[in-house]
Design a binder for these strands. Sequence first.
DNA 1: CATAGCATTCGACAATGCCGAATGGCGTTC
DNA 2: GAACGCCATTCGGCATTGTCGAATGCTATG
Lengths: 263, 263
Amino acid sequence: MIQAIDRAAQILLKLQGSRHLGITELASAVGLPPSTVHGIVKSLSQHGLVAKESNGNRYMLGPALLKLSSVYLDSLDVRARSMRWTRELSRRSGLSTRLGVKLFNEVIIAHHDPRPDGSEQMLETGLVIPMHASAMGKVLLAYHPEDLDDLPSSLRSLTGDTITDLGILRTELHDVAEQGFATEHDEAILGESSVAVPVADQSGGVVAAIAVVLPSNEFPPQDSLLNDLRETGRNISRELGSSVWPPISSSGTLLLPPPPQSA
Amino acid sequence: MIQAIDRAAQILLKLQGSRHLGITELASAVGLPPSTVHGIVKSLSQHGLVAKESNGNRYMLGPALLKLSSVYLDSLDVRARSMRWTRELSRRSGLSTRLGVKLFNEVIIAHHDPRPDGSEQMLETGLVIPMHASAMGKVLLAYHPEDLDDLPSSLRSLTGDTITDLGILRTELHDVAEQGFATEHDEAILGESSVAVPVADQSGGVVAAIAVVLPSNEFPPQDSLLNDLRETGRNISRELGSSVWPPISSSGTLLLPPPPQSA
DNA sequence: CATAGCATTCGACAATGCCGAATGGCGTTC
DNA sequence: GAACGCCATTCGGCATTGTCGAATGCTATG
């Protein structure tokens, strides 16, 4: 772990949380002397990773990040392969479709096909949702149970229906791994629910999840939707070179909640 | 300039150019010993800025960049203010509209409103175009002539009509600064032309450009389109607190080509 | 099964970035 | 309009830090 790079990343993260910050604010936020922070910020800004506000003397994230992320998206194999399938799924279902990959404790939306009803919808690519509050996150966790250890000790509640108990989450993930799909009902945003299935690659590992978002009053999803979704997940996985679907999960015992009387 | 951060940024840049690279490839690309590169890459990957390919042992850009860039876009004031105006411009003109900001020698598209004809169009946000080959770039250069010094010594030709001579570019930029708009005719992509106007902020400085893209057979644009575009630029600039529009350019002598007989 | 190429780990050296203090610029207040 | 105070920025000495070469381990290939 190289110190300077670690600190630089911390600073980017702080700017991610706070939009615009001065050197002193940043310094106290990361607990370093201002001169040190200044050096790091200056280095980052030489590469366009942070930028100084046009008028004031505060800093924000820089435009180079946009280019980097654009290339990141282009280099994501699963995204390129998914797009034609998810678009078709959106068309058939009349719903919006998302492709999500893991980013630490969150799912980040790497692609989004809007509802085909022609309404103006916001660009969701780049948005993040906590793992435990999304169907895609549940899928990713169910097939990578070791990631459960990285979850924050207390699960943040986004709505009244968010799962906040790790034991309950484990139990649900166990079912997810058995059924091959996950659902989420009003757990992230009130009125919005979703269903997700895994996407596997050549190695057989789950590398992403795709989900359809449906109004909560249409929950639970009809079998036909579920089948279309499954078919889509299977098709993408096949294009990526995965031979089996749904993927085999290493779950089993890993996902079972600890015995209730445990310390 | 902190060495480690500089090197880290170089590595991100190399990955930006080459998608997937192994440690040794990266090392020779940046001219450093593999062990050094490995340390940097490892540090970057801890923060999700680079990621290891799921199967092999090559590295690519990481998902954290997507989140960072998403926040970058959200924190771009000019983008938030532009969106409603550019959408309206697209609607009225039937053409696609772009918002571009400077990133070193390129313009990066920070927002894009597609043609309203309902056809499937690619997501242009994050794409970059060389300054000298785009109308937006010409606008940005015309109002920041000092940036001319950063241009590569030889201007890359993208089509037969790309301006590759710095003297000719300077002359055109002089006109751009006087007229308050720039055009580009088949200079970046054959069959595609564009017109751009500046966007100024509170300080009166030009911080972005907006452009409409039109088929080259409709070039030059009609006056009504030009007026709509100007109106849009003025409206956005006004929302950003700019009092005058078109902005005053610091150009004058700066943009005049050097005397032809100069050494 | 052997080999070659690669990623990765380790440790010693010294070059590097870190920090505290000094400077400079800017906005604000009286 | 002048003086104050805040904050970004610069600078230089010290020691911590990252760097690099060599050794290891892994995987894929012939």
